[in-house]
Simulated scan of single mutants.
Amino acid sequence: MPTLSLFHPRNRHQGRYDFTALIKSMPELAAFVRVNPHGDQSIDFANSAAVRALNAALLKAWYGLAHWDIPEGYLCPPIPGRGDYVHHLADLVAEHNAGVIPRGPAVHVLDIGTGASAIYPVIGHCDYGWRFTCSDIDPVAIKSAQAIIQANPGLRNSAEVRLQKSPAHIFKGLVGVNEYFDLTLCNPPFYSSSEEAADNSERKWRGLGKAGARHKRPLLNFGGRDNELLYEGGEALFISRMAEESTIFQKQVLWFSTLVSKESNLPKVYRSIKNAGALEVRTVGMAQGQKKSRFVAWTFLNPADQKAWHSRRPACSAYP
């Protein structure tokens, strides 16, 4: 598993944030910008409102979004890291397409758990023109994602949002009989209990120099509702169920994928995917500074079928 120390070359967010330029794009960010002890402009990353304002400014400056906001307490994703996931997936689907990244609305992506932010459709459409179907089990998140899509003309015809009515299922109830997806992606719930989340939050707060009684602080500076962060059995069990359900749709998806937050969960994830009967499994490491992550992707199609998948992709809509 190769681990990168820098952002993907196509990631728009190389280097440090240019707060002067970001404030020009969105003046509201100025209220949160301060000079840190090193003499650089920054924000208090322990302040969820500041993190939300930074995201809105980044999306406006770099992706041209006229509107982006999420309800208080919902997960506010780190945009550069989410971008890396999308760009590495683009490399993956290019492998059996003569090394060319397929672009445009004929590339159909299923976003499992899109959340209130709809961040993957924003990046995937703006950088590659892909079309997205987004799902979530939370009606409030669905409403927020729909508001973002409708408020930005470039996204209106490139993304739709569907409510997953059964929290026990991942792909069932979402993927239609005649629907085909080049990719699925997911940022699964990564804590098995509120206690585990609180312990991890405590470590992060101490790393931000905010030590103190945990009950006086929000759980995490980037927010997150229980359904976004917690899953009984943790991310390993969630991904296991994802792998199990993927067998049902193995002919309708080119590559299934998911982020894996904990490296220690990889052996369990590999066993689940192997038991599902996948023909090929990939693990791609990602790292930005001290933070390391990775995603795992699997397919039930052999190389010849992957090439055929690309060759029969039409100019739009369903295939093969």
Rank of each mutant, 00 (worst) to 15 (best):
A236N: 01
R271S: 11
V269N: 01
G233D: 08
E280N: 06
R313M: 15
F222Q: 11
G115I: 08
I137E: 01
Y180T: 10
D91A: 05
S192K: 12
K251Q: 15
L92P: 00
L183N: 06
G234E: 04
L59P: 05
L301H: 15
I43C: 13
K60W: 13
E244L: 06
H96A: 08
S192L: 02
L266A: 01
K268H: 10
P139K: 03
L75E: 02
A315I: 10
R203T: 10
I70A: 02
V281Y: 00
K268T: 04
H169V: 08
R294S: 02
Q252V: 04
G73H: 13
D199Y: 13
I149Y: 14
C186P: 11
I149A: 14
V281E: 06
Q41P: 06
G129E: 07
F132D: 08
Q290W: 04
C76M: 03
Y180D: 00
S193L: 14
G154L: 00
P267T: 03
S135G: 08
D127T: 11
P167W: 02
P27E: 08
H125S: 09
H38R: 15
G15W: 13
R241F: 10
G176R: 10
S158I: 00
V260K: 04
W62D: 08
V177P: 11
I79H: 09
E244I: 03
I119V: 12
S25H: 05
K216Y: 02
N55Q: 07
K24L: 05
Y74R: 13
A243V: 04
A243D: 04
I248P: 04
I23G: 12
I248L: 11
A278E: 07
N265R: 00
Q41H: 08
T184C: 01
K204R: 08
I248W: 02
S311P: 00
M1W: 12
W255P: 02
A56V: 03
A213Q: 15
K307I: 12
H169M: 14
C76A: 01
A211Q: 09
L266F: 10
